[in-house]
Write a protein that binds this DNA or RNA. Sequence first.
RNA 1: GCGCACGUGGCGGAAUGGCAGACGCGCCAGACUUAGGAUCUGGUUCCGUAAGGAGUGGAGGUUCAAGUCCUCUCGUGCGCACCA
Length: 776
Amino acid sequence: MFPYPSGAGLHVGHPEGYTATDILSRFRRAQGFNVLHPMGWDAFGLPAEQYAIKTGQHPRITTNQNISTFKRQIRSLGFSYDWSREVDTTDVEYFRWTQWIFLQLYNAWMNPKTGRAEPVSSLPIPASLTSEDERRAYVDARRLAYVSEAPVWWCEALGTVLANEEVIDGKSEVGSHPVTRKPMRQWMLRITAYAERLLEDLNSIDWSDSLKEMQRNWIGKSEGAQVEFKVEGAEARITVFTTRPDTLFGATYMVLSPEHALVPSLTTAAQRTAVEAYRNEVSKKSDLERTELSKEKTGVFTGAYAINPVNGARIPIWIADYVLATYGTGAIMAVPAHDTRDFEFAQKFSLPVVQVVAPRGTEDWKGFTGDGTAVNSASADVSLDGLATPEAKKKITQWLEARGIGAKTTQFKLRDWLFSRQRYWGEPFPIIWKRNASGAVSHQALPDASLPVVPPPLDDYKPTADGQPPLARAQSWVSLPDGSNRETNTMPQWAGSCWYYLRYLDARNSARFVGADVEAYWMGTSGSDSRKASKGVDLYVGGTEHAVLHLLYARFWHKVLFDLGFVSTPEPFHKLVNQGLILGEDGQKMSKSRGNVVNPDDVLKEFGADAFRLYEMFMGPLEMVKPWNTQGVEGVYRFLGRTWRLFVDEGSETRYEQGTAAEPHREDEFLSAIALQSSIRDEAATSAQLKTLHACIKKVTEDLEGLRFNTAISAMMVFTNEAMNWPVKPASVLADFLVLLQPFAPHIAEEPPASAFTPPGSPDIDGPGLSALADL
RNA sequence: GCGCACGUGGCGGAAUGGCAGACGCGCCAGACUUAGGAUCUGGUUCCGUAAGGAGUGGAGGUUCAAGUCCUCUCGUGCGCACCA
C-alpha cells in the first residue's frame, strides 16, 4: 500500500512491506518474470490542510516537500521501483481520473435483474412520470452516487462529516474527537448494492482469515424474515426483522426504536408524557452514552398493543433505545426466553417470558439462544412443535408468506458510503447545481471534457462563517456564468487510494484511466501471459488498519468498473498480506510521546541499506507484530561483514581503508585494488560443497515462495558460516550464492569485486552501498 | 459478551505428526591484539559435579510417535460490540 507522505518522514514500519515486495520482485525478475513494482503517494489529507489553515501556505507546497522527503528515504533503501509509474493522488493528471470514475458511479445504477451496475441510460423510467422534475428525481434516486439529507456523523473538531467506517466508539478515527449526529445534505455512494458480492467474492481471494472475517463482520449479513404485526385498534402495521421467526410464539412484547416513525401515532394519551420525556432524553444522549456507557436497559410503554399474527396474542408495544433506528426496520418482536437483550429488558420491566425452544442438553431454557427443538408453538392454524430450529424457521416463514404477512429477507449492517467532506485539500466533485424555472434545485454532472476540476486558490482555508466548506470562499469559482453553482464539498482521502493500483499499470496514459490491453496484460486476463496464475494484483502488502476502509472501498469501486466493462477482473487484489506492526525496543507501540521511535535514516547511516533491509525481514514472520532491537541489526550487519570477507582479501581491504583515510582523493584507485580472497579458485566443487549450496538454494527458493523471509535469511547465514571454513572456495559456488543474496542485499551483491561473479543485473540503485560496508 | 489469531530458552524466533530450541541477539570461556564495544574458536533450555532426569501456558485425549491433531481450561493480542 502506498504511503501518506507525512511531515514526520518515513517510519520503520513503512519499509517492512516495501522490502518484502522488493525482495520478491527481484527474485521473480531473476526467474524471468515481468514484474510491476511501483510506488506512489496518497497525498490528499488533513495535516497539509491544517498546516495551511495555520500558516496560509498552500497545501501543495507542504505536500511536495513531504513527498520529496519520503522519496529520498525510500530511494536510499535501494528498492527497485519503476519510478516512471510513480503516481500522486493530488496531481491533476491523476485526480482528473478520480473525478472521471466518480462520474461513472454517478451515471450508473444497479440493475436488480442482472445484479450488475449499468449506465443510467438503460434505466427504465415509469411512463406515469411525465414531468422533467419527476423523471430526474426518479433517476437521481437510483444512481450509485446520490445526494442524501440523512443524519450524518459530524466532527466539530475536524470541521467535517465522516463516514461510518471513520467513527470508532463514537469518536473520530483520526484524532479521537467527539462526533455528533447531524442532518446534512451529503453525497453518498451506494456500496450496499454490492453487499452480497463483496461478501461472496471474499471466497475467491487469498487473504488471511482474520481479515476476511473483519470484512464479513462489517458487511454483517444476516438472514431471517420480516413479519408484519397489526396494531390493536389502529390501521398501522409494524414490520419487524428477526433472524428467529421460529420463536414467534414466544414474542411477548414489541419494541420500537425511540425514533421510529409510528411512535407518536401509537402512543396513548395516558402514556404520552412518559414517551415524550423518554424520546427527549434519548435524543440528548450522545452515541457514546447510548452504547458504551448505558449497560442498563431503559424503555417506556407506549400504551398500545400489537397482535401476534400466529396466535392472536395481545402484546404490549414499548420503546427502548436498545433497538436501533438504523438497523432492520427499527422495530423488533421481543422473545425474552431466547434472546439475551430481550431477556434483560423483560426482567427489568417484569414482562412475561415464554419458552418456545427446548435446548438439546440439560441447559436452562431461559435465555437459551442456540438451536434446539420448538415447543409451545402451536395454534389452530399452524404448529412448529417438535421441529428442529432450521425446519421451524422454514415452516413458519412459508406460513407467513402464504398469508402475505411476512417474507424471507436478508439484512446487512453495511451502510452506504458517505462520500463528501468539507475540506479544501481533496478532489472537487465534477458536479454543478442548477435552479430550474420552477425554483427546484438539482445537480448535474459536468461533461468529461471539463475535467479536471481544479480547486481554486484561496487565502484562507477555513470553512466559511456560516459553516460552508472552504471552497465556498472562492465565489468566482463557485458561480458559473449560466447561474449555476459548483459543488463545494470535496471527496474523502479514500477516493484517490481506491484505484491507484490501476493507474500504476498505465500511469502516463492521458486518454484513459488505464488502457484496456495494458490492464488485461497485468491483471492476468489477456491470455497471452500463461505464467500468471492469479487474476488481479498478485501480491498486495499493507497494514491491517485498512481492513474495512480502503480495502472495502477499493473492492467496491473495482466491481463497479468491472460491471461497466472498464476492468477485466471482479476483484482487485488476489493475494493480500498484512505486515505486522513493528513495536519500539520497549515492546510498546512507537510514538513520539514514548520516545521510542526508530528513524530509518539513523539506522541507514550506521549500518547501511542492506543491513536495514535484512534486519526488517529477519525479525520474524512478515505478518507478526514484533519489537525492534538495535542489537539485532548488528547481528545481520555482522553477517554481511562475514559474507564480504568470504569474497574479499582482508589485506587489500585494510590497504583500501588506511589508504583512503590518509589520501581520500585516491579512494577510487584503492577501491579498484581490492582483491578477491586467494582461496577462491576456479575449481570444481566437492560434493559436500555442492550439498551445502543446494540446500541453501532449495530453502531460500521455497521460503520466498511462502514469504518466509526470516528463515530464508537464516539459510544464507548457514551457508556463509560453512563456506568461511572451506580451504578452497569454488568460484562457481560463490557465484550461485550471490544470486540468492542479491534480492535481499542488492548493494553488497553487486559491489566489486563481487560483481566479477556476474550476478544478475537490477534497475538503478541509489544509496549507501559500499560506503556503508567499507569499514567492516 | 461475540469473532479471529496466538502462547516454545534470558530475548527475537526455528521445527511436511518423526532427534524441540535452526538462525540471530545476549551471556560464558579462550585465541589474536598496545587496545577491543573489531575479528576468530568453543560453549550456552532447565535441574544435577556427573550418570541421569525434566521440558513447548495448564489438565485430559488420539497415535508406535504430539510444540504440531482433538476436548476442556487459563493467559495475551487484534477486531466487532445492544445489528434483533
